[in-house]
Write a protein that binds this DNA or RNA. Structure first.
Lengths: 135, 135
DNA sequence: CTTAATGTCTATACCTACTATAGGGTCAAG
DNA sequence: CTTGACCCTATAGTAGGTATAGACATTAAG
């Protein structure tokens, strides 16, 4: 079973240009070509792309994905490194979530204090974001 | 009271290059110069930079910041527009928070399944990230 | 006064993770 | 045999900066 780039595009929900971009970065190995110079991909390459996309959807950077791919090919090594990458990523996400929650809270306050009927001179949004305030 | 670019950099926790970048984008007006061609900033310009940074920290895009700055300079406008911008932003943030929460939840599950003691060939993280899995 | 360290200047290139576009070539169906 | 969908390469653009080079300005110490 082989695939053209458009097939992979659908399977992995990835733009065609993005697949070529991954190849250029070396995340995907160079595929075989047809006589007409079309890329043809193996199952394995398809799986690798899906892995990459799955990681990306989970918020891993391409560098992290690269590490995970490298690590996952060294099957005899301990998986503590992998655990570390995933753990750090989780911490970063949790931090980000906290920040966003704080931010949403502030915006909700702003929206409440500005019901659209007033003038800007009375609008607290500018005030709220001005220096010296601690929202 | 005037400031050199390095002062502003510290006050607003912004890299010097970034301040110049904002100037190039027209978000900050061109400051006066010393005889030695150093930029000198007024209080007002300092406040404007702080406002920009504050908005950025709250997740507004530079385009949105520009909008807010424009609006805030026309004090007679109704604040319905500001309300709209903030409201749109709030929605986006809430969506993002939901996404991140989902993501953190998945990662937590994955992390729990692998305590780093095993071998990569058996690593549940890699397993979970591989295609065909539904973690 | 000099010297060294630091700060600042302009200009350009680079970063991530793609996306868009131009100008072509390939292939299968009707 | 032509039409349309697909594919190719190459280049440039996006946001929001960051990094670097090479030169000039300022400041503190000796």
């Amino acid at each position: 079973m082989t695939f053209k780039i458009g097939d992979l595009s659908k399977i992995a929900s990835t733009k065609v240009v993005t697949i070529r971009y991954y190849e250029k970065l070396g995340l995907l190995s160079k595929p075989l070509r047809t006589s007409g110079n079309y890329r043809i991909y193996s199952e394995e390459q398809k799986d690798r792309l899906c892995f990459i996309r799955r990681c990306r959807n989970l918020g891993f950077s391409l560098d992290q994905v690269r590490e995970l791919l490298d690590l996952s090919s060294q099957k005899n090594q301990k998986c503590i490194e992998i655990d570390k990458i995933a753990g750090e990523h989780l911490l970063a996400i949790e931090q980000k979530t906290r920040d966003l929650n704080r931010l949403a809270h502030e915006l909700r306050k702003i929206n409440l204090s500005c019901q659209g009927g007033g003038r800007i001179e009375n609008c607290r949004i500018i005030e709220a974001l001005s220096p010296g305030q601690s929202i």
